[in-house]
Design a protein around this nucleic acid. Structure first.
Lengths: 222, 222
DNA sequence: GAAGTATACGGAGGCTCCCTCCGTTTAGTC
DNA sequence: GACTAAACGGAGGGAGCCTCCGTATACTTC
């Protein structure tokens, strides 16, 4: 049915910057929203999804009322934080692509992705059920990440430094799988395994770069 | 394994009656524990796992302090309730086997099982993570249910009224799967499907009973 | 069966967190 | 500079959690 979408909800689907096309959003409101998102991301990562909302408000330097006005429920805040962080992750890909050779941009981004997942561990207990209940959240964010991975891969393939038989979705699955299967604390293991994965992506490229050192050994250890 | 088990924990593994072998447990304490388990089971089923503990204490007719003495955390209570209910389900099998022909006992028990699962829906959000974190909880309870199903099946096979190529674990998986895939409210569908399953179990038995009505026919009133 | 004691009971109270409400402040407009 | 719609902030009431300790009672001993 023609379900109505509240402005706050619509604007959250793909961007977390306030949609300036809608009725004016005051500068202080936008600023506070960003402060809240940053404070919440840090708090969730450090203290889990059950961190008191008042602590988040205090961390952002705003009142609790302001937090509730922007994010009427805890879930709304978690969702916004997650979309925001995914947005940042994907934007970083553009920066990397514009400053580094494609293969190095890809390598760097894969490590950012690992750290992105690591900082979401605390939110996971809340985020997971939300993903099930709210399929657009899961589809949107995953779609964005897959698109970004595909873009990075394509750039590498075009430059001849990345093999051409891997798709963005596969890469995302692989990195996600590695991070999920790895122990909570020892994120170094994830980093190492993802380095390995990256070497695999270079192997069989059209024209491997002259003296790029391997990020890890070729063979996957037990 | 030589792992040490605290008294309170050991007694919970297979029985929920207080282990009388250990230091005397006062009669009033045992009674209150049972009252709490019953009240909690009802409350979780009716209102979900987030029901206030004070309501459960009130429902059991005891003080909140008594609840906390028996179950120091909400999870401890959820676990004890679950083990208790599994115990009841499995004990019912013995009663059924001693009063009914094996195949009818099996049919009746399968329906008890369906209702057992239905009343656990409310607890599920808490129980599921606990099953992951505490593997003995999951292994113990599942083991008991599988054993019980196997016993019922074996009795039917021995009497020649149940086919002999189905194992307890398969039966449990099948009934569990049917219940999980069925919609929240419409438990009638589960009952019907499980009746179907039971008819399948009779099909191919050594000597089908003379005039036993099909379980699917003996259906829940629409 | 009375006295003694270890054990269990109960709920008041302090704490934390949730969320709303409304007086105050301020960004943006004219 | 004045005006006003929008946003801010935090006090305060409510709910649930959990502890603590004075009271009650089941079992033991004689």
């Amino acid at each position: 049915m023609g379900r109505e979408v509240a402005p706050a909800e619509r604007e959250a689907i793909y961007t977390d910057e306030p949609a300036s096309a809608e009725r004016h959003i005051r500068a202080d409101a936008a600023r506070n929203r960003d402060l809240l998102l940053d404070a919440a991301a840090a708090a969730f990562a450090a203290r889990g999804a059950d961190v008191p909302l008042e602590d988040i408000a205090r961390g952002a330097g705003v009142g609790i009322g302001t937090l509730y006005r922007h994010f009427p429920t805890r879930e709304a805040l978690v969702e916004a934080v997650y979309r925001h962080e995914v947005g940042i992750l994907c934007e970083r890909a553009d920066e990397l692509l514009s400053t580094l050779p494609p293969d190095q941009a890809l390598a760097e981004w894969m490590h950012l992705f690992v750290r992105h997942i690591a900082t979401k561990r605390g939110m996971l207990s809340v985020l997971k059920p939300m993903m099930n209940a709210n399929s657009s959240l899961s589809a949107d964010t995953r779609g964005r990440v897959v698109d970004t991975a595909s873009r990075l891969l394509a750039a590498g393939v075009a430059a001849g430094t990345v093999r051409d038989d891997i798709e963005g979705a596969d890469l995302v699955r692989a990195v996600g799988g590695i991070c999920m299967s790895t122990d909570q604390e020892r994120s170094q293991a994830s980093e190492r395994l993802v380095g390995l994965l990256f070497d695999g992506l270079r192997h069989g490229a059209a024209s491997p770069p002259a003296a790029a050192p391997s990020a890890a050994a070729r063979d996957v250890p037990a």
